[in-house]
Design a protein around this nucleic acid. Structure first.
Length: 264
DNA sequence: ATGGCTGGACAATCCAGA
């Protein structure tokens, strides 16, 4: 089973790129971020024509998350992160698929630091961490996938010294990420590629992709049940080289078959 | 170090992204 996460940076503006990648990569489940579209503008017909069922949580202009599942309908289990009823951003959606809980998240960028956007990022992170603890208590397979807007270590940044005061690399944010991991989650890509530079984002400026001036900010966090099944992880970085593409590339993991086989 | 690029909402620039 192949599960992907992709910050598509505009689901309508880049629909051609999304469909091309779906056709090529054929993931079973896809977590999308940055739809940049309100609910009625989600391109559900094109996605269904490509063979995917979908649930989505959109918003005008910004944010927006969705979960796609090949040849089936994801079962919606949650829209929006608990902990703040006044939060209007569409940044979390969750589904039950194949006996797993799959949370798709778009953590706030938080720039500029310092400021209210940075404070919102930290508060959102705290809410995610509190909710993640509840998910672990369920003792079922859970995947929290998406754009975390944090480079966890220096290995995840092309030039760490340039980013020390950026909201994606501030110590408060890295600490929050590590506190989340300490609950018992596994960073799937880092688990299988402990020493490699594997980026998921290259900005549009200064020819960043050609220079490989990238960041690793899209992550899969796996609960213990899922970690046991992790067989591969990677990034479809060539997609970042396509015309009219997102500034992120799709990242993916592969899982071996479910608990029945694992117990043999 | 900074400014560079891109899309969306608008109908000229501004905002947000990372």
């Amino acid at each position: 089973m192949k599960i992907a996460t992709y910050n598509v940076n505009g689901v309508n503006g880049r629909l051609d790129v999304l469909l091309r990648w779906l056709e090529e990569a054929s993931p079973d489940v896809v977590c999308l971020q940055e739809l940049k579209a309100p609910d009625p503008k989600f391109p559900v017909k094109a996605i269904e024509a490509a063979g995917y069922g979908a649930i989505w949580h959109g918003q005008k202009s910004w944010n927006g998350v969705a979960i796609l599942a090949r040849d089936r309908e994801p079962t919606l289990t949650r829209k929006g992160l608990p902990g703040d009823p006044d939060d209007t951003h569409s940044r979390y959606i969750e589904a039950a698929i194949d006996g797993m809980v799959i949370g798709c998240l778009y953590l706030p960028n938080g720039n500029p630091y310092p400021g209210p956007k940075f404070e919102y990022k930290l508060a959102w992170f705290d809410r995610l961490t509190a909710y993640a603890a509840e998910l672990l208590e369920l003792d079922v397979p859970v995947i929290l996938a998406g754009d975390y807007n944090v480079m966890p270590t220096e290995l995840d940044v092309y030039k760490p010294e340039r980013w020390v005061n950026d909201a994606l690399f501030r110590i408060e944010v890295k600490d929050a990420y590590h506190r989340l991991l300490e609950q018992g989650w596994t960073d799937a890509l880092r688990q299988l590629h402990p020493g490699d530079r594997v980026y998921t984002f290259w900005d549009y400026f200064r020819n960043a992709f050609a220079r490989d001036a990238g960041l690793r900010i899209d992550h899969f966090l796996l609960s213990p049940h899922v970690t046991k099944r992790l067989s591969a992880a990677g990034v479809d970085r060539h997609v970042r080289g396509w015309e009219h593409t997102s500034d992120h590339a799709p990242a993916w993991i592969e899982l071996s078959d479910g608990p029945a086989e694992e117990d043999q």
